[in-house]
């Protein structure tokens, strides 16, 4: 069996560095398998998050050779093994230990967002009628596995640390899933413009590129939301029209 070297970030917020581990690799292995093998054989106390091992839960996010990815979906035959493979935690969030980052900020952001509020049911049994084609795009957003890889690459959070002013691509996708939900009755445009900071996004599309669920975050979620915000607050004719049509 072939061997490969993995350069893994070890330590906590006070003190951390890369440590090299050599381990055996075999056909079909993914990065998470290598991490598990190292954990079982050489570093029992290594911290790493995972659950499904099939790209469904969004737990195992990390930076592999600098690229934000799910460890369980990154096959070793897609990374060069003749040099050490670096594995680091997501860098846009504080470190807890080893490969585990403190992502609790994300959960707080969601809690502060205005929740779903449906219109009264269409039918007596308390249900609604919706056409498949009217929900296709919302279903795209609801594929999100909350891996936070998009939050990790977004420069507004990663480089400028504007966590207090910008909710990040994940929550813009969430906002879009609520705003475009056919039976939701709320209007979230005011907070999108202000506290959510949608204006910080300058459409670099880095988030879309890393999304393991292939959600077209920028084109399908963020840009349409930006357009709605513009319509609502900066387009006097539309605004007037809206006042009259209420």
């Amino acid at each position: 069996m072939a061997k490969a070297t993995f350069r893994i970030w070890r330590g906590n917020a006070d003190n951390a560095q890369f440590v090299d581990y050599e381990t055996e690799v075999s056909e079909g292995m993914v990065v998470l398998d290598a991490v598990h093998r190292i954990q079982a054989e050489q570093a029992n106390d290594m911290a790493v998050r995972w659950n499904c091992k099939a790209g469904k839960c969004g737990s195992c996010s990390a930076e592999i050779n600098g690229q934000p990815k799910l460890m369980c979906m990154t096959r070793l035959d897609t990374v060069p093994l003749d040099e050490p493979v670096t594995i680091e935690p997501m860098r846009a969030f504080p470190l807890i230990k080893d490969l585990v980052a403190d992502v609790s900020w994300n959960f707080k952001v969601k809690e502060q967002m205005r929740p779903f509020a449906p219109r009264p049911p269409d039918a007596e049994d308390g249900t609604w009628r919706m056409e498949q084609e009217d929900i296709d795009h919302v279903q795209e957003f609801r594929k999100c596995i909350e891996c936070f890889l998009c939050q990790d690459v977004c420069h507004v959070l990663r480089d400028h640390s504007l966590h207090d002013e910008f909710i990040g691509p994940r929550y813009l996708v969430y906002a879009a899933s609520l705003e475009m939900h056919p039976i939701d009755t709320e209007n979230r445009l005011e907070e999108l413009k202000n506290s959510d900071g949608i204006g910080y996004c300058n459409i670099t599309k880095c988030c879309t590129k890393v999304c393991p669920e292939h959600i077209t975050i920028t084109d399908n979620a963020i840009i349409p939301l930006k357009e709605r915000v513009v319509d609502e607050f900066y387009d006097p004719i539309k605004k007037l029209f809206r006042v009259f049509s209420r």
Binding site: F116, P118, P121, D125, G126, T127, W128, R129, M130, E131, Q132, I135, V138, Q139, R142, L178, H181, D184
Partner: peptide, 20 residues
């Protein structure tokens, strides 16, 4: 009832031709 209630909380199941 338990499944229908999920729709009131935002779940979006695939639809029939009639929209159910």
């Amino acid at each position: 009832d338990r499944v229908r209630e999920l729709e009131a909380w935002g779940a979006l199941f695939d639809r029939t031709q009639e929209g159910g």
